[in-house]
Design a protein around this nucleic acid. Sequence first.
DNA 1: AATGAATGAGTTTTCATTCAT
DNA 2: CATGAATGAAAACTCATTCAT
Lengths: 221, 221, 221, 221
Amino acid sequence: MINRGLFGGGAAHLGKSARTRARLMDAAVRLFARDGFEAASVNEIARLADVANGTFYVHFRDKDAIGSEVALAIARNVTRQLDEAMAGVDDAVDRTSMATRRFIDLACSEPDWGHALLRALWTFRGLRESVVGPLRSDLQRGVDQGVFDVEIDDMLIDTFASMVMGGLFARLAGDSGADAGARVAELQLRMLGVPAERARAAAWRTLEPVALRLAPLPPTG
Amino acid sequence: MINRGLFGGGAAHLGKSARTRARLMDAAVRLFARDGFEAASVNEIARLADVANGTFYVHFRDKDAIGSEVALAIARNVTRQLDEAMAGVDDAVDRTSMATRRFIDLACSEPDWGHALLRALWTFRGLRESVVGPLRSDLQRGVDQGVFDVEIDDMLIDTFASMVMGGLFARLAGDSGADAGARVAELQLRMLGVPAERARAAAWRTLEPVALRLAPLPPTG
Amino acid sequence: MINRGLFGGGAAHLGKSARTRARLMDAAVRLFARDGFEAASVNEIARLADVANGTFYVHFRDKDAIGSEVALAIARNVTRQLDEAMAGVDDAVDRTSMATRRFIDLACSEPDWGHALLRALWTFRGLRESVVGPLRSDLQRGVDQGVFDVEIDDMLIDTFASMVMGGLFARLAGDSGADAGARVAELQLRMLGVPAERARAAAWRTLEPVALRLAPLPPTG
Amino acid sequence: MINRGLFGGGAAHLGKSARTRARLMDAAVRLFARDGFEAASVNEIARLADVANGTFYVHFRDKDAIGSEVALAIARNVTRQLDEAMAGVDDAVDRTSMATRRFIDLACSEPDWGHALLRALWTFRGLRESVVGPLRSDLQRGVDQGVFDVEIDDMLIDTFASMVMGGLFARLAGDSGADAGARVAELQLRMLGVPAERARAAAWRTLEPVALRLAPLPPTG
DNA sequence: AATGAATGAGTTTTCATTCAT
DNA sequence: CATGAATGAAAACTCATTCAT
C-alpha cells in the first residue's frame, strides 16, 4: 500500500480503467496541492500518473473536470468519515466541537488532500454547502438542547465555516500545531453562547486519533 | 474624476508617467478581481489601461510585481482609512466591532477592490499580517479594559481574521446584505467573552457610512 | 427498415460482420456529408455506428479506406441505378437530359449521400471518370444520330460534368428547387447544338420519380 | 522581386507589420494550395513565412481568419484585374468570352492562387457571389443586344459559373492546356444561344496575355 | 469479431517577456 | 517614456492507430 495514493489504494481491486483514473486523480491532488489548480498542467498530471498525456482525456473532459471531481471526492470522503466518527454522539456541544476538530485533523492527515480541499472550497462554491450542510442540524440541535444561545442564520453558518477553514489553513501552513482544531472549537463554542469554562473543557477533551481512509470511488460522470 | 479609477483619481495631479502607472494598476485590479491573478494577462491589463503592452514593463518588472504592488496598495489604503475612521474611539468593544464592520464596508464599497483584496490575502500570505497586525493591540486593549475575557494568541487572531474574511466573502458573493459586518462583529464579540446583550448592542450600533478614498501612491522602486 | 441507413438496409440479411461494416459506412456518410472527410473523426464514426472505436479497424485499414470505399459505393450505386432507369431509352437527347436530371434527383433523394458524393467527386479525382464515363457514349450517340452538333473532347465532357455538379450543388444548398435538373439539362442540350425549342421540350418532359435504393454491398478487401 | 510572393510584393513598401502579415498570407496560400485548408497547419504557415509561431496570432485570430482573408484578397484582385482587362469592351459576346478566358488565365498564372481560389469558392459560399456578380450584367447586356437568346435566372448564372470552375479545375489539374478557357467560352456562348460559328470565332480570338499582379492590400479586420 | 483503454505525435492557442524604433 | 511587433516555450486538447483482453 506504499505510495499508491489514496484514490489508487481504494481502486486497487477495481478494473484497469478505474485504476488509471484513480492514478490520475492522485496525481492531480498532489499537483493541485503543490502548485495550485491553475498552475498544474494536464501534461504534468499525466506524467506523474505515469500515463500518456492523451490518456488524461480518455478519463476527463478537461482540467476543470478532474478539478471538481477530485474536490467532490475529497469532500464526500471527509464528510462521510466525519459522520462515522460522530455516530452515537448526541450532545450538541460535543458534536460541534468534534466536527471542527475532526475535520481539521482529517484534512491535515494527508496534507495534499487538505490543501486540495481548502482550494476547492474556495474555488467551487457549491462544495461549501455540501460540507457545511450537516453542520446546520448540529447547531439547531444545540439550540434545542438549550446549550447554544444564538440565532441560527446563514451568516452564522458562514462564519462558523470560515473559522474552521481558518484553522485548517493555519495548520496546513504550519503556523500552528495539532491543537489548532481544539482552539478554534473552543472559540466557536464561546461564540455560540457556551460558558467559557464549559467551552474550554469540551473543546480540549482528548480525542482518539483518526486517519483519512478512502473507500473505492464510484466513477462519476 | 469620472470613472478614472481609484489609483487614477489619486494620481491625476502627478506627472504623465505616474498616471500611466496608476492606470495600469487600476486595470490590474479590475482584472485580478474578475479573473484572478493567474488568468489576468499582461496584454489585457495593458489594453484595459489603454497603453501598449510593452509599456507595462516600463513600470513593473514583471506580472508578480504589479500583483504584490496592487495588493500592498489596497491593504495600505484600507488600513489607513480604517485608522482614520477609528481615531478617537477608545472603547475596545467599539474599536473591535468597528474594525470588522468598516473593513467589510470599505472593501465592498468598490467590489473590484474587495475581490482583489480577498484574493490577495489568500495568495500573498504576508498581507494578512499587515492587515491584521493592528488588530492585536485592540484585542489586548479589550483585555486590559476588562471587557474581553479571552487569551490572546495567534490562533485567536487568525480565527478573528478568518471571520472577517468570511463576512467579506459573503457580501461580495451577494450571499448576504449590508448587515453582514454587524452580524460578524456581534459573533466576534461573543467569542471574545462580551455578554450577548452587550455584543448585540455594540455590533449593531448605527455607523455613518464612509467610502473608500485613495491618496496618491508613492512610486515603488 | 426504419432509419437503418442505406448500407444498413442493404446488409440487413447478411452476417453480423457485414452489418457492422454497413453501419460504419452509414455513419461515415453522415459525418462526411456534415463535416467533410478531414473533420470527421474515426472515433465519432464508431460512436455513431454504435461500435467500439477499435472495431473500426477490424473493417477498414484506415480512415482513407472507408473514405474511398464509401465514395466508390455511392458512385457505383448511383450509376447502376442510372443505367437501370435509362434502359430502353434510345434517343440521345432523351438519354442525355435524363442522365443529368436523374443523377441530380438521385443524389438529392438522400442529401447525406448527395453531399458525400459531391465532396468525393471533388476529393477523389478518379471517381469523376467512373461517373462520367458512360456519358461519353451518350454524347457520341447524339452525334451519330445527328442531333448533337459538337466536337466531343475531354473538355466537353468535363464541362458537361461541371454543369451537373453545379446543379447538384445548387439543389443541395437549397438555392434552387426540384427543377434545377431540368434547367441544367436544357442548357446542356443547347450547348450541344440542340435547337432551343427542342432542348426545352426534351429537358422539361415529365419524369416519373425514382428513389435511391441500395443493393447489398459486396465486402471489399 | 524574386520569391517575394504576391502579397509580399505588393506590401514591399509598407511597414514591417504589413510585410510580416503579407508573408504569412503568401505562406498560407502556398500551403492551402498544396495541402488544402484543413491539412495546412498554423505552425507550418509560420515556419514557411519565417516567423515564430506565436507571430501568426499577432496578425490573425485563427486559421479561419487567414483563410477567408486570403480568399477574399484573391477574389478581389482577380475581379479587379478582370474589370480592368475588359474596360472598353462593349460587345456582350466579347465580354462574356473574355471574362471566362481571362478568369481562368489569371487564376492559372499563379497556380497556388488558382488552387486557393478554387478551394475558397468551394468553401466560402459568399465568395461565389462576389466573383460571379458582375457576370449577370454582361449576360443581360447580351440579351439586350439581341445576341443571347436565353432567360437569365439564378440557375443560368450558377451553371455558367460552374463551367468556368470546371475549366479552371481542368487547367490546374493539368488535364487540359492553355486553350481550356477558349473551349469553355465557346460552349458557354452556344449555351446562351449564339450560333455555333460565331461562338467558335469569338471564343478563340487571340487574346494578349496578362499576368496576375497585386496591388497592396489594405489590412482587413 | 469486438472491445475500449492507451498511446504519443501533432494541432491550435496563449502569454510573459524582449527589443528595435 | 512609450510603442507594438516579435518571440518561443508551454499550455490545452485531438485523433488515427494499436493492442491486450
